[in-house]
Nucleic acid binder design. Structure first.
Lengths: 215, 215
DNA sequence: CGCGGGTTTGATCCCAGTCAAGTCCCGTGG
DNA sequence: CCACGGGACTTGACTGGGATCAAACCCGCG
C-alpha cells in the first residue's frame, strides 16, 4: 500500500554515505555497487566491520539507536534506495510482514558478524584471507553478479582487505601472494580458480551462502 | 494483552542453553545470571562472540534464520524467560511496539558486535583486556548489579576471557597481571579500582553504557 | 592426603608488524 | 611522444607481541 521509499542516492567511489557517530534520519538498501562499513579508532587506524553488497540494508541500527556505529563508504559507484527513519513505527504498525523481514535481515547480519569475530579472534592470516575471499565470492555469485568465467566485481584495494582482516597492508599482500594460483584479483574483479583448495586454506566449510531476502 | 511468555528456564553453571547449528523453536530473555555465546571452530578452539547479561535477548537471530549462530552456555546459574518462535509473526502483527523494541535490541546488538570486531582486529592484548573489563563492569553496574564497593559479579574464568579476547590463556593471565592494581578479580567478582587509568589502557573513551530497554 | 581445575610464571619460537626500497601502472603536462 | 609524479602493489630485512611448551602453585574437595 504505502510506499516508504524516499528517493534514491548515487555515490561515486570514495563517497561517504554517513559517518560513524552521525545521527541518521534515513536508512538504506543497496541497489547496486559495493562499499565498506568502517570504524575508525582513536589512533586513526580503520577496521572494516563488514562489506556492503547489493541487497544489504545499512543504517538501520544507526537509525534505531540514534547513532551510526560505523562509517559507510562506497568502494565502487553505488546506488541506494533511501527510507525515512521516522516512518519506521508506521511500517511496524501497518506492514508487519515487512517489519518482520527487516528484523530478519538484522538477525542475519548478526549471524555474519559472529563469524567475522571468530575469524578475527582465532584464525591465521592465511585462513582469514582465504575465508574472506571465498565468502565474498560466494555471496556475490549468489547474487548473480558473476560473469561467464565466474569472476565477480571486486572494487576493493588491498588496504581495504587489510582493514577488514585486521592485518597490515604488507602482510595482506604477502598472504595474497601465497594464494595466487587459487585466486585471481585484478582490474576490479575477483576470480576463484580452485574453490576446494581455497576452502581448504580457510579450513572451514563454505556453508551455503544464505542469500538475504530483499526488503 | 496477549502474553507471549512460554515458561522459564533455569540453568546451572556450565549448562548449555542451545548449541551452534541447532534450529531453535524458542528465544529467550535473561532474567538473571551471566553466560557466554561461543562459536567453536573446526580445530576445536572457541571464540566467545559476546557475553550474555541480564536484560539481553538471545536466540532471536537463531529463531529467525532457523539456525543458531553460536552456543549459549551459562557461566553462573541463570534464569531465563522463554518465548515461542512461531508466535513471532503474531507479535509483529498485534503488538508493533514490542516488535519495534525487539528490532531495536537486535540493532543494539549489532552495534556492540561492531565494537568487538574493531577490538579484535586492531587492538593489542593490553588494550583488549582493559577494554573488555571496563565494558563488562560498566554494563553490569548500569544494571544495578554492583555491591557497596562497586564490585560486579564475574563468574568467568580466565579461559573464558581468553576466548572472548582472541588470546591464549597464558597471555591473558600475563596481561591481567599487568592490570592488577587497576582491577581486582576474585571469587566471582570484578572490581575496578581506577576507572580512569583502565580507560587509558583501553585507549578509548568508556562511551556511556547504553542500557537496553527490556522487552 | 592426594587429586584435579584453575592460575601463575619462565623460556623459547614464530607469525605478523614495521621500516625501507623498489616496481608497475596510469594520467597529466611539457 | 616522452618525462614526471603519484597511487597501488611487491619484496626483503628486521623486530616484537603473543603463542606454545613446560613447570610449578594454590586451593577446595573427596
Amino acid at each position: 500500500m504505502m510506499d516508504f521509499r524516499d528517493g534514491e542516492v548515487d555515490l561515486a567511489r570514495g563517497d561517504v554515505l554517513f559517518e560513524e557517530g552521525a545521527s541518521l534520519s534515513h536508512f538504506y538498501t543497496v541497489l547496486s555497487g559495493q562499499g565498506g562499513r568502517y570504524k575508525t579508532l582513536e589512533n586513526g587506524e580503520r577496521q572494516m566491520v563488514n562489506f556492503v553488497f547489493p541487497g544489504d540494508v545499512t543504517g538501520l541500527s544507526g537509525s534505531l539507536t540514534g547513532e551510526a556505529a560505523a562509517t559507510v563508504q562506497a568502494a565502487s559507484p553505488m546506488r541506494l534506495c533511501r527510507f525515512r527513519k521516522n516512518r519506521l513505527p508506521e511500517l511496524f504498525r501497518d506492514q508487519s510482514e515487512r517489519a518482520y523481514a527487516l528484523t530478519y535481515i538484522a538477525a542475519t547480519e548478526e549471524h555474519f558478524l559472529g563469524e567475522i569475530i571468530a575469524t578475527l579472534g582465532r584464525r591465521t592470516a592465511l585462513q582469514r584471507t582465504a575465508w574472506a575471499l571465498l565468502r565474498i565470492h560466494t555471496r556475490l555469485a549468489a547474487l548473480g553478479l558473476h560473469d561467464a568465467d565466474g569472476a565477480v566485481p571486486f572494487p576493493y584495494r588491498q588496504a581495504d582487505l587489510a582493514d577488514a582482516l585486521g592485518l597490515s597492508v604488507v602482510h595482506t599482500n604477502k598472504t595474497l601472494a601465497r594464494l595466487r594460483d587459487l585466486v585471481e584479483i585484478g582490474s576490479g574483479r575477483l576470480k576463484v580458480n580452485d574453490h576446494a583448495a581455497l576452502a581448504e586454506q580457510a579450513l572451514t566449510e563454505p556453508e551455503p551462502p544464505r542469500v538475504r531476502p530483499l526488503l
